[in-house]
Design a protein around this nucleic acid. Structure first.
Length: 402
DNA sequence: AACCTCACG
DNA sequence: ACGTACGTGAGGTTC
């Protein structure tokens, strides 16, 4: 079923093999230091949790934890199952002190086990670096994935998580230079839908979430509040995934009625979006596949399923696949061009990581300016869309500075 | 091996 | 009444 584009797929293999061969340096000592500190914090949190629970138990066991929370402590459970996932715990915040400790415990324990204590074990003794493996044909949409270890999910969202990035360092006299596509999937939505307002939003170079907020809440863009922007951001992303009013209401902690209102206003302001999303679904109904800009195809076999739940899930794939998949196509083409250009110019710098919409290079300091120029140029002009593609650049002496 | 949870885009 | 946002990989628990 899958259409393989040989002129794209085969050259990418060389880029990937080169990245895997070169690897990234991880500072063992820094992570060891972090490990000690995290273990200390985790111990303190464990003490607080056991004290509030009135007994010792395995906090890592959702089964035992739910017993403590929903039976022993009598906290309200919102779903039939006794889920203890982060979004449920978030709703229980304030109901018991134990919740805050559990949330922190979970965060620290995740960072410790998945990264801080794990990465040093993956350092290759010959190269003294960590070498991931990229899978080129492992995903449904055309994205890459990364295994053993996964270097596409290095923490960044929390303060403690960011510290882990300090452990990733370029070699002496080199810097990391990171290039990331700004809002590529929303830009592709603008391109495919040809919605005038969304195209205008990107042409005006305004912050897209503030721009959406100004349209949806009918205020001047400079008067958009942080909360309005947050809500607009949720709607923008929700659209890419085919989120329902219920889903949005859950995420924003607002009523379903308000969420429905938001989405309707969104479609009223960006008039071409809803018809475009419907076209995506109709195409999938007709051809039983979704496709990307380069005609990469994904079978959407359940699009006519009689079970509404299964059918709606298929409809969401029909909406999301062209966006996520096209973004993957574009960055792959850019990677091939950049690799060729690096060889042609005989540069020492090299691609170190690909994180879906971002490329990180390890670059000789004297080459940084050259790289900044030609990589940005290639990425932004990889394909002529109805909106500009823009790339943001960060330079640093560790991954935490990118 | 299945399930839960959570790290990232 | 039901379930409800796409794409991944990894670590821990449970069976």
């Amino acid at each position: 079923m899958e259409t393989i584009l040989y002129d794209i797929e085969i050259p990418l293999i060389f880029v990937l093999v080169d990245m895997e061969r070169k690897g990234v340096y991880v500072n063992r000592e820094k992570l060891l230091e972090m490990s000690k500190e995290l273990k200390h914090q985790i111990n303190l949190l464990e003490g607080e949790i056991f004290s509030l629970a009135g007994k010792q138990f395995n906090i890592n066991s959702p089964k035992q934890l739910s017993e403590i929370l929903f039976v022993d402590l009598g906290l309200p459970s919102f779903k039939k199952n006794f889920s203890t996932s982060a979004d449920i715990l978030e709703k229980l915040r304030g109901k018991s002190e134990i919740i805050d400790y559990i949330i922190k415990y979970r965060e620290f324990n995740k960072l410790l086990t998945t990264y801080v204590d794990s990465l040093p074990n993956q350092i290759n003794s010959k190269t003294n670096r960590v070498h991931t493996t990229y899978l080129q044909t492992g995903t449904a949409t055309g994205r890459l994935s990364s295994i053993n270890p996964n270097l596409q999910n290095i923490p960044i969202r929390t303060e403690e998580g960011k510290k882990i990035r300090e452990g990733f360092e370029p070699q002496k006299n080199y810097s990391y230079v990171a290039f990331d596509y700004s809002q590529i999937e929303l830009r592709l939505l603008a391109h495919f839908s040809e919605d005038e307002n969304l195209i205008q939003a990107f042409n005006s170079n305004e912050d897209i979430h503030s721009y959406t907020a100004s349209l949806v809440f009918n205020v001047d863009i400079k008067d958009v509040t942080a909360d309005q922007r947050r809500k607009a951001k949720a709607v923008n992303f929700g659209i890419l995934y085919g989120q329902s009013a219920f889903g949005l209401s859950e995420q924003l902690n607002i009523t379903v009625k308000d969420a429905k209102n938001f989405i309707e206003t969104y479609f009223a302001r960006y008039k071409r979006i809803k018809p475009y999303l419907e076209e995506c679904i109709e195409r999938a109904q007709k051809y039983k596949v979704s496709h990307t800009l380069t005609k990469r195809q994904r079978p959407i076999l359940e699009i006519d399923n009689k079970n509404p739940m299964i059918r709606q899930a298929a409809e969401r794939l029909a909406i999301n696949t062209p966006l996520q998949g096209t973004a993957a196509d574009l960055i792959k083409i850019a990677m091939i061009k950049i690799f060729a250009e690096t060889k042609k110019r005989d540069l020492k710098g090299f691609m170190a990581l690909q994180i879906h919409d971002e490329l990180v290079f390890e670059v000789l300091d004297s080459e940084v300016d050259i790289f900044k120029k030609f990589v940005k140029e290639i990425m932004e002009n990889v394909f002529k869309l109805k909106v500009p593609l823009t790339v943001d650049i960060e330079v640093g002496k560790s991954l935490s500075e990118c």
